[in-house]
Design a protein around this nucleic acid. Structure first.
Length: 609
RNA sequence: GGCCCCGUAGCUCAGGGGAUAGAGCGACAGCCUUCUAAGCUGUUGGUCGCAGGUUCGAUUCCUGCCGGGGUCGCCA
């Protein structure tokens, strides 16, 4: 928390002094006031020791009838203080009632202290939001480095829809963390070292022969059949002529493999760009062994050995179906059970090469050495069994100084007008990421992928997400943003005398906002900073999407109240002062919608077409 | 069998130690001389899978069970 927060005494009142842009989190503001009040009251535990205030929270009450803020302090502290919660609440209420920003206080239920804020406070808050613009809700910077690794699809073909969710979730989460004040690096781990890229190379070599005019017949089982390798074959033929024809694999594999990987990564980057996903770092798995720094996998294993975490031993055969080629042998094992894994893990295959896990340990060690004690990986749910060992590894290689959080993304099921879309990998008729983006647009794809908890399965209906109706949350939220711009345009025409600049709006008499719908909108807006912080801390980007939907809903609802009650309309020629205040309010709504959508990587259109 | 995720309204899903558990869809009843009806309002609808435990308070946390999905050395 910044030092200047000390002495913070609320938002500027109308005509009051300018205040530096803070997080403008009213809940944090009053939380600080409550804590200060508790200290002033000299509350102590029953045994005279200091109280633990960590569970004291100020939050929006579930029911608007309970006011603007709910304080649980009396209930949480009653036991350690050995006092009656309602009496404590009354004592606290007496102190807080003197705060000019608090209009009403009430003790309710088992010991809640409910607060209603003064109109002047809300007015100052809204003025601050309008002035802050897209900075409102942004967390205080300096929260430290965090690395988000996502997508990391194998460079063996174009991205398909299965990769889509992880890509969007990772990208949005990284944006949220950055907005919340972290120093974020977006990273992609290129799996360019295993057997699969050799298969890719052989597949490309076949296409190379095809480009030379040879009859290659059917693509054999086990190779990649997709047409996307034809241009790679043609490029190889153009560059190398017949040099690789009829030669043993050893003479061409490495070259063809690198060319093919480069081509695949170029394609994947284009796919990602179409999804509005841009990584800061593309990290090559292969470079861990062949890079200028030597064999970093070996060094990672050395690190574990030095920590006494490697030993020679035997593993129990896996339960369930025994692999056919299971051999019981003594091998070098990583003591991952010491960090919560289920069994110890081998880092070398029987042929002496490293396991995928070994490389991954080296990679995560590399991230740690680059200063990332805070690491997040986004994986498909089918990799769930890998989580514990990777977390164990991160703790092991960092001496428990680094932590890894893994977000698992469940499957996306595709539908078209309610009918499942069938996909067959065998026939190559899988739906690519590019197909989806081109059909429904990047905004719809991204928003829908985020409009669900990532660990819950997601149904994605091509038809529904392009529908222009309230059933389509993408449209619904974007429309709310566009609606505000339409209102502002109307206002400029009908009330040309009003200053609609941010400064002008912030200077309006905002205490005129006193309708329940208007106050409801202000309260919703006020939650934006804590929603951002919550989404960032819990690593749950869907919270942003749901919040935006709620905010849009509030706006649409209030807009419609103007039908029955024309005096509530935003633009009211007979009442320019109220109009001015309301325009400030809708401008703040639009501003929050715009920054929320920006964080999700979704466009905020000024008009719907 | 071990581990992980999920189980909340008829359906799709939010919420997550606190007050009377929410939204959308569906169904039913309304609202367009209007700042965009591309929308809104109201009604209907729940034993928060089951059973214990922790707590002043559990739908939320813990344990067990039931049901659904995923996964289980040398694929990545």
């Amino acid at each position: 928390m910044r030092a200047c927060r000390a002495g913070f005494s609320g938002f500027p009142r109308q005509g009051g002094p300018e205040r530096t842009v803070d997080t403008m989190d009213i809940f944090a503001d009053f939380s600080a006031r409550v804590r200060a009040t508790i200290e002033r009251l000299g509350w102590k535990a029953a045994d005279g020791s200091a109280l633990d205030l960590s569970r004291v929270v100020v939050e929006p009450p579930r029911d608007a009838a309970h006011g603007d803020l709910a304080v649980n302090a009396a209930m949480v502290l009653a036991k350690p203080m050995g006092q009656n919660p309602r009496q404590l609440a009354i004592q606290l209420m007496g102190e807080l009632a003197a705060d000019p920003d608090i209009a009403e206080t009430e003790v309710a239920g088992p010991g809640f202290l409910n607060l209603r804020l003064a109109p002047g406070y809300w007015a100052g808050f809204l003025a601050g939001v309008v002035r802050a613009g897209d900075q409102f809700g942004r967390g205080v910077s300096g929260k430290g480095k965090v690395n988000v690794e996502y997508v990391s699809a194998n460079p063996t073909g174009p991205m398909h829809v299965g990769h889509c969710r992880g890509a969007v979730v990772g990208d949005a989460l990284a944006n949220i963390l950055a907005f919340a004040g972290h120093d974020v690096t977006k990273e992609y781990y290129i799996n360019d070292a295993g057997a699969q890229v050799d298969v890719l190379a052989r597949s490309a070599h076949l296409r190379y022969l095809e480009a030379l005019g040879r009859d290659i017949g059917e693509i054999p089982e086990g190779l990649y059949p997709g047409d996307y390798l034809k241009p790679v074959g043609a490029a190889l033929a153009a560059e190398f002529g017949t040099a690789f024809e009829g030669k043993p694999e050893a003479e061409w594999l490495a070259t063809v493999r690198q060319k093919a990987i480069d081509a695949m990564m170029a394609m994947i980057r284009e796919d990602l760009a179409a999804l509005n996903v841009v990584h800061d770092v593309f990290f090559s798995e292969k470079s861990l062994q062949t890079g200028p720094e030597g064999d970093r996998v070996a060094r990672a294993i050395d690190t574990l050995t030095a920590a006494g975490l490697m030993y020679e031993g035997r593993l129990e055969p896996p339960k369930g179906q025994l692999p056919e080629d299971w051999e019981d042998r003594e091998q070098t094992l990583f003591r991952s059970t010491q960090f919560g894994d289920d069994v110890d893990r081998p880092l070398k295959k029987s042929d002496g090469s490293y396991t995928y896990f070994a490389s991954d340990i080296a990679y995560h060690l590399d991230k740690y050495l680059r200063g990332f004690a805070n690491q997040i990986d986004i994986w498909g749910a089918d990799h769930g069994g890998y989580v514990k060992r990777m977390q164990a590894a991160v703790r092991a290689i960092s001496g428990s100084k680094a932590a890894l959080d893994v977000k698992l993304c469940q499957l996306v099921k595709l539908f078209r007008a309610g009918e499942p879309v069938k996909m067959s990998k065998r026939s190559g008729s899988f739906v690519t990421l590019r197909d989806v983006v081109e059909e429904v647009g990047v905004d719809a794809v991204r928003f829908m992928m985020l409009f669900r908890k990532s660990d819950a399965p997601l149904d994605f209906d091509f038809q529904k997400v392009t529908e222009q109706s309230k059933d389509n949350p993408v449209f619904y939220v974007q429309y709310a943003h566009a609606r505000v711009h339409s209102v502002m345009k109307q206002a400029a025409e009908q009330l040309p005398g009003l200053d609609l600049s941010d400064a002008g709006l912030a200077a309006a008499d905002l205490t005129l906002l006193n309708d329940a719908g208007e106050l409801g909108l202000l309260k919703r807006i006020a939650q934006w900073p804590r929603v951002v912080e919550g989404a960032a801390e819990s690593h749950e980007p869907h919270r942003i999407a749901f919040f935006l939907h709620d905010l849009a809903s509030d706006l649409h609802a209030h807009w419609n109240r103007g039908k029955d009650l024309p005096q509530l309309r935003f633009v009211n020629v007979d009442d320019p002062l109220s109009s001015h205040a309301r325009l400030a309010m809708v401008k703040a709504v639009a501003s929050v919608l715009a920054s929320g959508l920006a964080v999700l990587g979704v466009g905020a259109p000024k008009e719907m077409r």
